[in-house]
Design a binder for these strands. Structure first.
Lengths: 107, 107
DNA sequence: TAGTTATATAACCAAATGGTTAAGTGAGGG
DNA sequence: CCCTCACTTAACCATTTGGTTATATAACTA
């Protein structure tokens, strides 16, 4: 289980989210990714490393080419965190509803 | 619709995520939040402002007390983004499966 | 009115971030 | 054996970030 700090930190940058969006569609090489952004290739390499250490990106090296793809499991962890929070706040809303109904009955 | 840059940026900080976790359970005043962290009150105020401008936090001011709560809609936008990506990558997985089945038949 | 309470704002600082250019590494191809 | 190609690493820089202390503001309270 990777830690959410790194995952949310990785997703905080718009360039990295756009990389994730592209990789979700299909795996790409480092060069292909770099070609799609108005940044230098080392800048892209840095972003990829951030995504990789967060667990969001997986890399398969074949000769001198690096194939990158997203990790569905890690994306799922982000979903899980939010869903976890939702359980609490919908619980709170439900309790509020019950409270309102009680007041209704009192009238 | 708030922009995801600010939302993901807000969630990138562990302190702010812990604030969100508490607010998901129930609304709290600024002072109550500050009391739960080993940070000074101005530091908390800064975090709250970041959460607020991202749209994740809503504030209702009553006299000198500020009541804070999370915005379910904004949380939902984060979910939507990830679900949107998932549609693509599961599509890719499906296409991969089809491809593998084709190869299977060829044998 | 004077004092306290809840919170925000200002000014400042160290560390992290996101970018650059230049140089390094190592796999393929003539 | 070179040269190129795909990519990383290093060194550097400006800006942003997350914290601090000190001060301000505005609402209650005695």
């Amino acid at each position: 289980m990777s830690d959410l700090d790194a995952v949310f930190g990785a997703l905080a940058d718009p360039t990295r989210r756009r990389i994730v969006e592209r990789l979700a569609r299909k795996p790409l090489t480092v060069g292909e990714i770099a070609a799609e952004f108005p940044l230098t290739q080392p800048a892209i390499s840095k972003h990829l490393r951030v995504l990789e250490t967060s667990g969001l990106l997986e890399r398969r090296i074949e000769g001198r080419v690096h194939y990158c793809s997203i990790s569905p499991q890690t994306m799922q962890e982000v979903l899980n965190w939010i869903e976890g929070q939702r359980k609490y706040w919908t619980g709170a809303l439900d309790r509020l509803e019950v409270l309102l109904q009680k007041n209704e009955r009192k009238k």
